[in-house]
Nucleic acid binder design. Structure first.
Lengths: 229, 229
DNA sequence: GACAAGCAGATTGTCGACAATCTAACAAGA
DNA sequence: TCTTGTTAGATTGTCGACAATCTGCTTGTC
């Protein structure tokens, strides 16, 4: 018997598809922070009744990218500078932990997958597809979490990723300029292939990809704009 | 004008109450791991239609204590030894981080609240109310997360707490014997009041309250029982 | 007896309609 | 003018019924 892994069949509930659609719209910034989601309007656009739509929205609320106020509505979360700082600082700690756990488990398959994802980032960069660039960069970054063999850690990372992706997308949209052409992941990948775990951890802690500094300055801009209202 | 803080009004949707009811039932072990939740039966018992019940269940799925398989049902998550180990090891890392962030923010109000929660644990212990003892112990433990001034960290902790509470409740149920009478939190509280942050972190990392060792041995028992099927 | 097809019951997924609540505009009174 | 009460419209929360899907049993065939 060949050990062929078929994997699970796709979820074919409307709910699951709605979740995917909404999530994508939020994470790419098509739905802006603070924006209200009108159930009737969306359900008509999607040709779906409100029941599965509402269930989908509950999931995204719990996922942390929507927020719900009873009898008032469901809204895309607002993004403050503090949120970004908080998410980033937690991400640093988790990175360190993920690298520590992944380290002894690295094997050829890990290195191959690392290269594959790195290549995907470079390709998206060449194609100037900013949305895809963010996606692939986060997937590259997520490999250490998938490899760390800790399901709770992975879940936590995935929740965090949603927000990070949203933050970066907003940032890109705001500055509205082409993404950096040079490859900022070269060092990261090289360190993960190397033999100095501490160095890899230090790098993760100090220099996150996708220039975090810029993201922060964007966040501070948001803060100022918000305080004026 | 007296600066009286009224705080937000209680959510009075059926959905929110159902969430609370179900969560409590799961975390106290009244609903056992792996058990299926029959929508019709539960909605009749609660005198509620299936719509809000289903929405509540979606929330708990996303919260990580239920799992859903399309057209098959929604089930209480199974608990494996690995889950417990994973949750615990992540908890160690988060504790360290939370202590680091809380440390410079400690003030009189912090110490007062620390004592208050510690007292609550002792009281539950004296009353031999095991469920409440677990709850209060986790609340005591959660103070450093509430104080760390990092919303993402707090959310992560709350998710983790759900599972930890469930694990401990299962453990207590399984061994079915009175809880330890002596106070295991004395050292923890003292260290948090002291001036040696490293020592507090080390304590959190090495000796978690509510004897984790026992919990693990229980988890290993689960593993063995499961492998027999 | 083994096995596939098909049927019946139970359960989940989805729908359309109704009830409860909120918001904003307007009117009445101090 | 400011406050308070009222009302209409829109939106969310909930309900009961129907459709889609799964499960286990029965039946028929070899």
């Amino acid at each position: 018997m060949a050990k062929l892994d078929f994997g699970p069949i796709a979820d074919t509930t409307r709910r699951a598809e709605i979740v995917a659609l909404l999530r994508r719209a939020i994470l790419t910034g098509q739905l802006e922070p603070g924006q209200k989601l009108n159930e009737l309007r969306i359900s008509e656009q999607m040709r779906v009744s409100r029941a599965p739509l509402r269930e989908a929205m509950r999931e995204l609320v719990q996922e942390g990218i929507l927020t719900s106020i009873p009898y008032a509505g469901t809204f895309v979360i607002e993004v403050t500078a503090k949120d970004i700082i908080d998410a980033y600082s937690l991400n640093q700690v988790l990175d360190e932990f993920a690298i520590e756990r992944t380290w002894p488990l690295r094997d050829q398959r890990f290195f191959d997958e690392l290269d594959r994802r790195h290549e995907a980032v470079k390709q998206a960069t060449r194609a100037k597809d900013t949305t895809r660039q963010i996606e692939t960069a986060l997937q590259l970054h997520g490999l250490i979490y998938e490899w760390a063999d800790n399901s709770v850690l992975l879940e936590t990372w995935q929740r965090l990723t949603s927000r990070l992706q949203m933050y970066f997308a907003l940032h890109q949209r705001a500055r509205n300029e082409p993404v950096p052409a040079e490859d900022v992941h070269e060092t990261y990948v090289a360190l993960l292939k190397g033999s100095d775990m501490r160095a890899a951890q230090r790098h993760a802690r100090e220099h996150i990809d996708l220039d975090f500094e810029e993201l922060l300055s964007y966040a501070r801009g948001l803060e100022k704009r918000a305080s004026k209202n």
